[in-house]
Amino acid sequence: MLEVRNVSLYYGGICAVNDMSLEVAEGEIVGLIGTNGAGKTSLFNVITGFARASSGTVRFLGRDVTGYSGPRIAQAGMLRTFQTPVGFPKMTVMENMLVFSRADAAARPSIFRGASPARAVLEEAMEFLAIFGLAARAGDWVQDLAAPELKMLEFARAMMAHPKMLLLDEPAAGVNPALQGNLIEHIGALRRRGVTFLVVDHNLRFIRDICDRAYAMADGRLIASGPTGDVLNNPDVIRLYLGGGAGEEAA
């Protein structure tokens, strides 16, 4: 589904991503680990059109999407989340949902349509909100939500777009262990609905719990890949994380 080939990214003279390749097949949940500054988010940015690769190609659903703009990649069905989920603070939870809906995307070219969304769209949004425990807050401003609710809203919102693939940037960051279990369940449920995942996280336990395979990065390059267990037991990876002193609980 997603195929990254020999991607490099330079910011001025600094190399953020160095000749990275990775693949994600349909229905997989793939992890991408590495310490701070390893280049994970930079790679995310290249894949999702937020940064332009200095070299290399990105293919999505068999199409070469290298150099596509962010909105175009999103329209192609690849959605990403951000490390700090803030949403659209001064819009209601429901508006946040609608912005991601296909109905809105279709109505946007006309500047007048979509003022009162179709019943079906509102119902669908409400269902997703119910799933993520946010139904009661549909009419509230997002800036009034608590941090865990914001996290849940990330998923609920993403569902509205019916993405084929979700790129999660540190979904477990700042989430307490109880809620982490919740998150894992939700990701599992989404996968059953046919969503493919690429997940960046520091939290190795979380990665182990959800990912089929994993890639490990250091200094912008790939240092290990394979089934999650193997990667996490790779001596280079262990050294990297122990050196950082963070271990499995790194968050």
């Binding site: 803030v86 912005v99 946007r108």
Partner: peptide, 27 residues
Amino acid sequence: MISLSAFGRACKALRENEALAITAGID
């Protein structure tokens, strides 16, 4: 009418969080 439409929501989304709006396919 414009600000309440889907287009208006897209504008508000850009106002609030441009990066996130991009992931919603808004140019």
